[in-house]
């Protein structure tokens, strides 16, 4: 593929191949790819999203009582932030309370393997999605007019 390698390093020697394979196994044992990551990525890639912004997430430590079942996740990009609070509901699903900043009356779509739910943010950028099933999901912010994607989050587990 590239220039020829010098003689003393030519050929990936057997021992080197062995050592590299061993190192790979060792790293896989010590720091395995997190379970579910590959599935989350595959799910996120299903969406046709053009060239919209990809938000990066930051999960805050749970505020309040331990086991109190509220998570706060902030998703940021240069132009838009989405903050969501996730709380369990008695029915075993979750309620998502969110804010867009800067505020905009955009459509907020929550997609999961079963389909999509859409809420419209109010003029203050607030939105609510109630009784969302637990599991894999991704949030897509779309323009109210036309519906083209403005930003999307990585796929996360609710």
């Amino acid at each position: 593929m590239s220039e020829e390698e010098p003689v003393e390093l030519t050929g990936f020697e057997l021992q080197d191949a062995f050592v590299v394979a061993e190192l790979g196994e060792l790293c896989s044992l010590l720091d395995p790819v997190p379970p579910g990551l590959v599935d989350r990525i595959a799910f996120a890639l299903e969406l046709e999203s053009g060239d919209c912004a990809i938000l990066s997430s930051r999960e805050e430590l749970t505020a309040g009582v331990r086991g109190g079942e509220t998570r706060t996740i902030t998703f940021d990009s240069a132009g838009l932030s989405v903050m969501i609070d996730i709380a369990g509901t008695p029915a075993g699903a979750v309620r998502v309370d969110g804010w867009l900043a800067p505020p905009g009356a955009h459509l907020v779509e929550l997609r999961n393997p079963h389909g999509t739910r859409t809420a419209r943010a109010d003029d203050d950028g607030r939105f609510v999605l109630d009784e969302v099933p637990r599991g894999l999901c991704q949030i897509v912010v779309r323009a109210a007019a036309g519906g083209e994607p403005l930003a999307l989050t990585p796929a996360i587990m609710l």
Binding site: I41, A44, S56, S57, L152, P154
Partner: peptide
């Protein structure tokens, strides 16, 4: 190819959660 990216990102010293985010973002990009 995700394992290669996981170890690329973890070798940069990134934490467990942000490393997952970064790998996913890489694919989205």
């Amino acid at each position: 190819l995700t394992p290669m990216l996981w170890h690329t990102v973890r070798a940069q010293g990134l934490g467990y959660e942000s490393a997952q985010d970064v790998v996913q973002t890489t694919w989205l990009v």
